[in-house]
């Protein structure tokens, strides 16, 4: 096997391992019990899969055609930059939307904090008349009656 052949083999191997990684993360997304754990599979390992694959493609083009593709590198940077943020945003949204955790969850550290923040904000905004919670509206109605 020549040097070029070896490099191409390595490139293909990288892509294949990326594919294996993707399969693993797909299994993860199927098997994990709730959103919060699934997102681990959905973002972390699939990001790795993409990184490996794109790196493989980059090496392939570099050795095969002598073409150093900036677009592929930019793609790697982009995915590396955005995938964690996307995961973070989804899970934040899920937590605020009160998606249930699995029964095996041991601790929810944010439980008190979020509750407190919400209460504070509601209290503040009701004072300024900005928004009003549904319970408050009911109360006011009763008082008027």
């Amino acid at each position: 096997m020549t040097v070029d052949g070896t490099i191409e083999f390595i490139a293909a191997l990288l892509m294949l391992s990326g594919a294996v990684m993707a399969l693993l993360s797909a299994i993860g997304i199927m098997r994990f019990p709730d959103v919060y754990t699934r997102s681990h599979a959905g973002t972390k390992s699939s990001t790795l899969a993409v990184l490996l694959t794109l790196l493989g493609a980059f090496i392939h083009f570099a050795s095969d055609q002598g073409f150093y593709s900036v677009r592929l590198l930019l793609g790697i940077v982009f995915v590396f930059l955005t995938a964690p943020v996307a995961g973070h945003v989804i899970i934040r949204a899920a937590y605020r939307a009160n998606v249930k955790m699995s029964d095996t969850t041991i601790e929810d550290e944010l439980k008190g904090v979020l509750q407190q923040v919400k209460q504070d904000a509601e209290a503040d905004r009701t004072e300024t008349g900005e928004i009003m919670s549904e319970d408050k509206k009911e109360e006011l109605k009763h008082q008027e009656e």
Binding site: L81, T82, V85, H88, V89, V117, K118, D120, A121, D124, R125, E127, T128
Partner: peptide, 16 residues
Amino acid sequence: MIKHRYRINNVILRTV
């Protein structure tokens, strides 16, 4: 001042 207590903290998203 009131507004700052329950602001939606989006620092990560906004920076990225």
